[in-house]
Amino acid sequence: MSKYVLIYKGFERFWHWMQAILVLFLAFTGFEIHGTYSFLGFHEAVTYHNIAAYLFLGLTIFAIFWHLTTGEYKQYIPTFKNIKAQLDFYLFGIFRNAPHPTKKTLLSKLNPLQRLTYFGLKIVLIPATILTGILYMFYRYPTRYGIEAINISSLKAIAIIHTASAIMLVTFLIVHLYLITTGTTITSNLKEMLTGYEEIEEEEENKNGE
C-alpha cells in the first residue's frame, strides 16, 4: 500500500523553478558577455544579466531565510552514512534495476550524494558566483567615491572566478538534468518537483516515523 506525501512544499518548488529559470537565463546571457557567442547583443546581454542577477540575489535571500526558519537546512548537512551504497547504486545497481538504497522521507528527502553535492553547491559554488557577481557589478564604485582602501584594481580575478563557477554550475546542470531520470520511473522525480507529492510506501513511512 502506498500514499502520496507532500515532500516539496510550495515555496521550495517556487524557489527551485525560479532558480532554474534564472540560472539558465544568467548562463545564457553570461556566456554572451563572456564572448562565447553573440545573440542578444552585448549591451542587451549585460542589461538583462544584471536584472536577472538582482532577481537571483533576492530569491537567494528569501531561500536562505526559508531554510533557516523552517529548519530545512538540516536536509543538506552532509552524511557519509550509506554513501557507498548510493555510489554502488549509481555505478552498478541501477543497471540491474536494483531498488534505491535510501528511501525518501519527510525528514530526509535527499540521498547522501545529493546532500554532499547540494551542500557544496550552496556553501561554495553559489556563494562564489554571487559574491564575484556583486564585486563585478560594483568594483568601480569605491574609487568613484574616493575610498581607496577598498579599491579593487583589476576585474581579472573576479571575472575569472565568476566564469569558472558559472562553468561548474553548467556542468552541475547537465548532470542534474540527467539524474532526474534516475527516479523510480524515468519521470517520477520530475513529477515530484512539479507537484510536490511523492508516492511513499506506507510501511516505510511508519518505520521511519517510529
Partner: peptide, 23 residues
C-alpha cells in the same frame, strides 16, 4: 587590464569546456 567579452582565461575556458564534454 581585463574587459569582459574580450578577455578570458585560457585555462578556465579550455578546462571548462573539457569538463562540460566529460559531463
Amino acid at each position: 587590464f581585463y574587459i569582459p567579452g574580450r578577455d578570458f582565461s585560457k585555462i578556465v575556458d579550455r578546462g571548462g569546456l573539457l569538463m562540460i564534454i566529460f559531463a
